[in-house]
Design a protein around this nucleic acid. Structure first.
Length: 831
RNA sequence: GCCCGGGUGGCGAAAUCGGCAGACGCAACGGACUUAAAAUCCGUUAUCCUCACGGGUGUGCGGGUUCAAGUCCCGCCCCGGGCACCA
């Protein structure tokens, strides 16, 4: 087991030789294996207390995708959460600290095809492997609450929510243009389109294909999702909130109808600058616009199709503007003038109405387009002061705008929108950038969408009594064509729940972001067969007190989760408006200058790290090397430093355990060490409660240990006892294994992370006096030790009497003396 | 282009409210211990001038406010990330 050091002698800084004491060297392999096994054997050790009178604390790390093995990048997230959970236990909270698996998804399906193994088997193998690594790292999860999203007990409730949303009109089906790879013969998610090509066929451009898809109406909550961002300020990083605001993209303006000359059909455009409508010299349609399909044919239709495909391919960045004149003319409802109707590649079908009025004099894009195609440019706004240079996009004074000429444009804007409404050709309108959430996936490894298509009854949801719709085990996976479930007759063929006639099941599965939108609610009541969870359990635990994860989820997962919470609230299941009161996004772990990846060959697996350094060392180093929100450079040399430090603590503790009952009176050394001990306790406590700068907590702890080493020989037994105990307690959230071991070595019982957190005594922290800096013209020239609270006048006198100061001041004239009590004296001189 | 971060020794970083720049650690060097090495313990380490005492300079760049600026203000540069033809 623990090996005795070969030499019991210890040298000390003062050179004084201590009596020979037993000192241990630390073996992380043995100690970590021992405690890991003990913790695994006690299923309640990390469990929350039922019916607790303590305040609750729900700390959550984002659940991982079970891809295989953990590396040292993954463990940063868990290490931060684990330190917090353990700290909160010590502070007397009833802590909920669960973990689970985001277990559905395409990688499992692809791996299954490649290795000829079932995705479920592949996934469960990975879960077992990652769980083993979590346990080896010593993370304090309550595994009795584990959730795996690919199990029917979980995805049943995805289906249940889906049918609830259908009932409320929050789920609908519509045709939409989707990314299509002809080689795979399948739809691709946006994430699977790389530089306009399929991720698996990097030379095959993605086409746009129209398919019928299921959508969740997240836009019904767009306003609330945006407005309540304000309630998250302070608890969520500003960066994340800014990204969400940007993503939701609310824009106020007006919609106005132009009438197609001849047919009388309306083209509705969205504009934020209706005040410039007299300058609209053409109408431009998105290539996907319905009117284009209806009226554009022949060569021009082919050109439009090419435009659509080109846009999918080019995708990123600014592309040269291209237009096609449809030959149609549309009447401007304000001026009555006809303008040409064009199709433009820069007009987005998914934003606003998919059609714009081009005002080249007052919009840079319209200016560029109209200049290119020699469409007239008519200024209708002049600046309040100065020359007009085109395009002029600021507000100003309206001109050439009929009755509105001469008005400030802001005024004209409001009046003209009202005019459009009064005359029935428009209204004020709000447009969002966020779109409804398309959740259909033509994949196997996901939650079956619980809908039935009946020739007579139309779309019928699967009744609750028939849920879950089980994902069949025997589907044939090819990675090609439509959903594998469509070729599984036993699954597809079903009787209509309404009329009983033969019908057909929906064969698409749900986006896996559905699974992760509410998993943290399921942790609170994960064995419930009758409901997704009990409302009482949620009432007790929610909102999540601290959510921790990567910033890459700032938009997708975190917006979906906020939506899902509001949706469940409106179903009457819960009463909280937001899932998490606080969010923390940790930085990445960098190795050799870049993020770890298989391609770069710079991945260090968690197992390799633990073999070499130990879990505690890895945790301590990752917390020490940078503040948690910043990126962190992993270096083996740095990790060795962390290991060295833990050894230093361990040796001190073990060689002093037998010295606690000696006789001795406290003296100067004790005072110094206790002062540092209490200062450090305060510092670490405050870092946990406010800043989360664990790097400075650990630095302070190292300073404390240095101070202890300096004075070790002279310490009285009472001091030694206090120091030993508090050292172990203060270090416990950061390095749980070694602290548990030392606690036991000290003859103490109970898990160390359930002991009360050490308190500090302000009186003991007091320095002997104020170290007052003496400056001449802002430069430090001397210093003095003065009793705290020494008066300004007295400090000034002392400073001027200081020989060094007198030398520096010399014959110069004293202009001014600034005194900051207990801090500094600055003598300002001239000449 | 817009929105966030960030720029401090050889390296990771600290300075929490405008008050000693570089805590703590890594690396390097020196010493103690050892037959030796490792481990451990102690020490030195921003830079320039000076034998030394001591002094000058220094937080991306240029200005400013102040007795005092890494920190506040104005104008820039560079790096990283996000969004990006959003009408």
């Amino acid at each position: 087991m623990i090996t005795r050091a070969t030499t019991g002698r210890t040298s000390t800084p003062s050179g004084a030789s201590l009596p020979s004491m037993p000192e241990r060297t630390y073996s992380h392999q043995e100690v970590e294996a021992k405690w890991s096994a003990r913790w695994a054997a006690d299923p309640t050790i990390f469990a929350a207390e039922p019916n607790s009178t303590k305040p609750k604390y729900y700390v959550l790390e984002m659940l991982p995708y079970p891809s295989g093995t953990l590396h040292i990048g993954h463990i940063r997230n868990y290490t931060i959460g684990d330190a917090l959970a353990r700290f909160k236990w010590m502070r007397g909270f009833n802590v909920l600290h669960p973990m689970g698996w985001d277990a559905f998804g395409l990688p499992a399906e692809n791996a299954a095809i490649k290795n000829n193994r079932h995705p479920h088997e592949w996934t469960n193998y990975n879960i077992a492997e990652m769980k083993r690594q979590h346990r080896r790292m010593g993370f304090s999860y309550d595994w009795s609450r584990e959730v795996s999203t690919c199990e029917p007990e979980y995805y049943k409730w995805n289906q249940w929510f889906f049918t609830r949303m259908w009932d409320k009109g929050l789920v609908y089906r519509k045709q939409a243009l989707l990314n299509w790879c002809s080689e795979c013969a399948t739809v691709l998610a946006n994430e699977q389109v790389v530089n306009g090509c399929c991720w698996r066929h990097e030379t095959i451009p993605v086409e746009q294909k129209e398919l019928t898809q299921w959508f969740i109406k997240i836009t019904a909550y767009a306003d609330e999702l945006l407005n309540e961002i304000g309630n998250l300020e302070g608890g969520w990083p500003d960066r994340v909130l800014a990204m969400q605001r940007n993503w939701i993209g609310r824009s106020e303006g007006a919609e106005v109808d132009f009438t197609v000359a001849g047919s009388g059909e309306k083209i509705r455009v969205f504009t934020t600058r209706v005040d410039t409508i007299f300058g609209a010299t053409c109408v431009i349609l998105a290539p996907e616009h319905d009117l284009v399909k209806k009226y554009v044919s022949g060569d021009k239709a082919a050109a439009v199709k090419a435009m659509i495909d080109a846009r999918a391919t080019q995708g990123l960045g600014e592309v040269e503007k291209v237009g096609i004149d449809t030959g149609l003319r549309a009447i401007n409802p304000f001026s009555g003038e006809p303008v040409p109707v064009w199709v433009g590649n820069f007009v987005l079908s998914g934003y606003g109405t998919g059609a714009i009025m081009a005002v080249p004099a007052h919009d840079e894009r319209d200016f560029e387009f109209c200049s290119k195609y020699e469409i007239p440019i008519v200024p209708v706004v002049r600046p309040a002061e100065g020359e007009l240079t085109l395009p002029f996009t600021e507000y100003g004074i309206s001109q050439n705008s009929g009755p509105w000429s001469g008005l400030a444009t802001a005024q004209a804007r409001a009046q003209m929108a009202a005019h459009a409404k009064a005359n029935g050709f428009g209204e004020t309108a709000v447009t969002f950038r966020i779109k409804d959430w398309g959740i259909s996936r033509q994949r196997y490894w996901g939650t079956p969408i619980p809908m039935i298509h009946c020739a007579t009854c139309g779309v019928v949801p699967v009744p609750d009594k028939d849920l879950p719709v089980i994902l069949p085990k025997d589907a044939q996976l090819t990675g090609k064509g439509e959903s594998p479930l469509a070729r599984t007759p036993d699954f597809v063929n079903v009787d209509c729940p309404r009329c009983g006639e033969p019908a057909r099941r929906e064969t698409d599965t749900m986006d896996t972001f559905v699974d992760s939108s509410w998993y943290f609610y399921r942790y609170c009541d994960n064995h419930n067969d009758d409901a997704p969870f009990s409302s009482e359990a949620i009432k007790y635990w929610f909102p999540i007190d601290q959510y921790i994860g990567g910033v890459e989820h700032a938009i997708l997962h975190l917006i979906y989760s906020r939506f899902w919470t509001k949706m469940m609230r409106d179903l009457g299941l819960i009463s909280n408006d937001e899932p998490a009161a606080r969010l923390f996004t940790q930085g990445m772990v960098i190795k050799d200058g870049s993020k770890m990846s298989k391609n770069k060959g710079n991945v260090i697996s968690a197992d390799t790290m633990m073999d070499e350094f130990g879990a505690d060392t890895g945790r301590l180093f990752e917390l020490f090397a940078a503040p948690p929100e910043r990126d962190l450079d992993w270096t083996d040399a740095g990790a060795e430093g962390a290991a060295r430090f833990l050894g230093r603590v361990f040796r001190f503790v073990t060689r002093n355990i037998d010295r606690l009952n000696e006789i001795g009176e406290p003296g100067e050394a004790d005072r110094k060490v206790l002062r540092k001990l209490h200062q450090t306790t305060k510092k670490i406590t405050e870092d946990f409660e406010s800043r989360w700068h664990f790097n400075t907590s650990i630095a302070a702890f190292m300073e404390l240990v240095n101070e202890i080493y300096t004075h070790e020989a002279a310490l009285a037994p009472a001091t030694r006892r206090e120091v030993l105990e508090k050292l172990v307690l203060l270090l416990a959230p950061f390095a749980p294994y070694i602290c548990e071991e030392m606690w036991e070595e000290m003859g103490r019982t109970g898990p160390v992370f359930k002991q009360p957190w050490p308190t500090f005594d302000e009186a003991l922290m007091q320095e002997d006096g104020a170290d007052v800096v003496l400056q001449v013209n802002g430069k430090v020239r001397s210093r003095l030790l003065a009793p705290f609270g020494t008066s300004k006048a007295e400090l000034e006198k002392l400073a001027l009497a200081d020989p060094k100061m007198q030398l520096m001041i010399g014959t110069a004239t004293i202009v001014k003396v600034v005194v900051v009590p207990d801090k500094l004296v600055n003598v300002v001189v001239k000449g």
